[in-house]
């Protein structure tokens, strides 16, 4: 079943069109990779799906589980299962990571009409997940991402993903800034979340990540459109020949 359907999406930022009619369908259980040169609109797409303000959708549609996603407030989308691991996770000084995780998780649960987690249940869950991601408990006492290394920030994103159990995970360059070991740990974390009901959209510049998170489908984006889609071998092809061949197609 289609989890996410982006149809002919046109998006403007400050009077400039960035996405020029983008179409993408992601089914439950699938892993999609989106590759494409800098500035081709990959982050823009992820932001529009997540509902970041400042983007004007001039045409097209986004359906999530058959519902009109663009009609939903961003926190509603989150509660419905849309998760975006940011390319640049922000720092929130003075707000302990643990507090943040708990506030966010309970906000989502409340929005879904579920009961809040009890403290012991919550702590148990966080401990399990953070352990599997090699995140020390001490880190969770610090302000959200404050003073975290690049790799730690990315792992913190995966931690939240694991905790919130979303049905659509969009990972925007989760591999950037990660050393090889950290990459493997984060990728393992992502793979552990792979399930028949959950889909992943992995945005990356490097085929290396796709050795760890193996995609079912690879899309090439250029100048605000998906210009080619194919199997995982497409990523290898790109690695060998670059994006130049698609520039004209766009």
């Amino acid at each position: 079943m289609a989890l996410l359907e982006v149809k002919d999406l046109k998006v403007r930022v400050e009077e400039r069109e960035i996405l020029h009619g983008l179409t993408l369908t992601v089914n439950e259980g699938e892993i999609h990779a989106i590759m494409g040169p800098n500035g081709s609109g990959k982050s823009t797409l992820s932001h529009v799906i997540a509902g970041k303000p400042g983007y004007e959708v001039t045409d097209g549609q986004i359906l999530f589980k058959g519902e009109d996603l663009l009609e939903m407030a961003p926190n509603e989308r989150s509660a419905k299962g849309v998760f975006l691991a940011f390319q640049y996770p922000v720092e929130i000084p003075g707000v302990a990571t643990m507090t943040f995780l708990r506030t966010a998780l309970n906000a989502q649960r409340k929005a879904r009409g579920e009961s809040e987690y009890s403290t012991p249940d919550f702590l148990k869950k966080v401990r399990e997940v953070s352990k599997s991601l090699n995140i020390p408990q001490d880190m969770l006492k610090r302000g959200v991402n404050v003073g975290f290394s690049g790799g730690e920030k990315k792992r913190n994103e995966v931690l939240q993903m694991a905790l919130f159990e979303p049905s659509l995970c969009i990972l925007d360059e989760m591999d950037s800034g990660l050393d090889i070991d950290a990459l493997r740990i984060a990728a393992d974390g992502v793979n552990a979340l792979h399930s028949p009901k959950r889909a992943m959209v992995v945005i990356t510049h490097y085929q290396r990540l796709l050795n760890y998170i193996v995609p079912d489908i690879v899309h090439v984006m250029s100048k605000g459109r998906v210009v080619k889609s194919g199997g995982k071998e497409l990523a290898l092809e790109l690695e060998a020949s670059g994006y130049a061949q698609f520039e004209d197609a766009a």
Partner: peptide, 23 residues
């Protein structure tokens, strides 16, 4: 960006401001 980060994780705008300010 900080507000949106919080909102993406499920907080309302108001809750996000409250959280950031309390921090």
């Amino acid at each position: 960006d900080v507000l949106f980060y919080c909102i993406q994780r499920g907080l309302t705008q108001e809750e996000a401001v409250g959280l950031v300010v309390n921090g």
